[in-house]
Design a protein around this nucleic acid. Sequence first.
DNA 1: CCAACCTAACTGTGATCACAGATCACGACA
DNA 2: TGTCGTGATCTGTGATCACAGTTAGGTTGG
Lengths: 253, 253
Amino acid sequence: MAVPVQPFAGPAEDAPVGRALARRSGALGEIGALSRETLGERVTGELRALLVAGRLAPGEKLSLRRVAEALGVSMMPVREAVSRLAADGALEVLPNRAVRVPVLTLAGFRELTRLRLVIEGFAAEEAATTASAEQIERIAGFEAAFGRAANAEPPDTAAGVAANRDLHFALYEAAGMPSLVEMIERLWLKAGPILNLDMRHEPGRLRGGSAVQAHAALLAALRRRDAPAARAALENDIRSAAAHIESAGGLAE
Amino acid sequence: MAVPVQPFAGPAEDAPVGRALARRSGALGEIGALSRETLGERVTGELRALLVAGRLAPGEKLSLRRVAEALGVSMMPVREAVSRLAADGALEVLPNRAVRVPVLTLAGFRELTRLRLVIEGFAAEEAATTASAEQIERIAGFEAAFGRAANAEPPDTAAGVAANRDLHFALYEAAGMPSLVEMIERLWLKAGPILNLDMRHEPGRLRGGSAVQAHAALLAALRRRDAPAARAALENDIRSAAAHIESAGGLAE
DNA sequence: CCAACCTAACTGTGATCACAGATCACGACA
DNA sequence: TGTCGTGATCTGTGATCACAGTTAGGTTGG
């Protein structure tokens, strides 16, 4: 199975720890709330990150005990994490009760793509009309980062994946609809493995080219507050990425 | 807390047990696969049913031990069920780590309604173009059942809720997109508590009236294969229900 | 009479153990 | 040589226990 995970690599505190608690007397105002993250939640986050980054290949089987050992925790938190991820389709429990990363069929991938067009397209429209100037600049920052990663020699795929994700979700969050962002996250979690597994193998040049173009059009539309154009640009981005994945093969059935 | 649940009331076998295994020699062709449902899955289904039926009020706190005792199982399967339901927002774990049914704010309800319009509207369009004649007749059957429940004296709210759910999901399944149905189920799970809690208190006449009308228009559109009309009818249904909920109050903040 | 404390019951979380089912490899029989 | 039975090993599932944190209720001190 080979889970390439250190026991909680990276800073465990991703939550805003130093959140200001308004005025307090003495030094009490300076201490932040302790991190009250459950072990199960940390394991969930760890597995989720591995999934969207494409580090876990579709069809790969997971063993609760192995994951638990790799992460240095008991089996219990892993069970909870797997339950959650299986609940929203990021993992899959076979009738044999074995746990694995779902393999996407061609039909399933196309369905997912259509849903992404509908939902993320709606989010783009919404964001175009409601985004603040700061939010648009934030998106522009990620677009620049993506361009740098794509045009580097050789292309920096890891940075590109990260910038692409940040850009898209900055856009979706600008729509101001938390449940919508949640839904899109679920879609990405399902599509993540093939999407980024592919980008990892590929130089990413092709995708980079059309993606850079689509991102530029998206940003221009946002600045013009042009909702239909924003939707069209995002749809182009999704469609070109999907076409590339399909042509690259790697989908079952 | 008062969980009004019998230990697994109703038939546990909702899965197609007698699925034919094609030709087999002797009597082996007649035996079906045994039901291999996990306790955790059964508890999940039980809680899910309580939620969509509005039997668990928003804000109500759940205790793992109490639920476990009420269902006659250990705490373990309940933990798994709550993990899953909390993962897709059907339940909520407070920072105190207490578990409760989420209370929907007015803003949250409106966001949910907008998402329903986008997603279920898309499903209706899709179903209008791809539904088979049998599927349309199936929907018609539920529409008739809904009409009977709504026009009965007094209105049979329980049957109405069930027929309404069956009708909608028969429509969504006719679109032939499993992930789409899954997404809509999640939306209903979130909106279910207020939606049906309200219908339980209310005679349901008002809602019944406009709903019957919308359902009839929907069915006519399906028979004409008129996708935009189907979408419009469904949107009317959702909008009128939402307006009724909002006017009835019961939403936080 | 009100506030503060303090205890007791209860909460979810995590670990550990027990168990049935699945999987795979090896070996025996046809 | 091919196939079936058999064993060990590993799987997820469920139960039980231990523990820290919260909450509610009663009591004490002001």
